[in-house]
């Protein structure tokens, strides 16, 4: 079988409607960014799912290592004083 293309992989992000963030929806292969946008339109917006598309070459995404998730995210666990619910305010004090 011919070795078809090794077209690069792009990650696709769609803005569902004005005012919302672009959200990751999946990935696809394309020769270049323009083709990636066109394919993303066919693949991910067949039912008016979006008003704007971003595509990013997958190789350009830098991700945190799941092996380091404890070191990265656990320090926040004992800092419950960062949340408003940590503080008990008497009922008679209003609008706080």
């Amino acid at each position: 079988m011919e070795n078809q293309h090794h077209w690069p992989l792009y990650e696709v992000f769609i803005r569902a409607r004005g005012g919302l963030d672009h959200k990751h929806v999946g990935s696809l292969h394309a020769t270049d960014a323009r083709m990636a946008i066109e394919h993303a339109r066919d693949l991910y917006t067949r039912r008016q799912e979006g008003v704007s598309i971003w595509v990013v070459p997958s190789v350009d995404i830098v991700a945190s290592d799941p092996g380091e998730s404890a070191a990265l995210f656990e320090p926040a666990r004992d800092k419950i004083y960062r949340h408003p619910t940590f503080y008990e305010i008497p009922d008679e004090v209003k609008t706080l």
Partner: peptide, 15 residues
């Protein structure tokens, strides 16, 4: 096959 080849060639040229 020819479509994929043409698309690849075009992308390489653009690049």
């Amino acid at each position: 096959a020819w479509v994929r080849e043409a698309a690849t060639a075009y992308a390489e040229k653009q690049w």
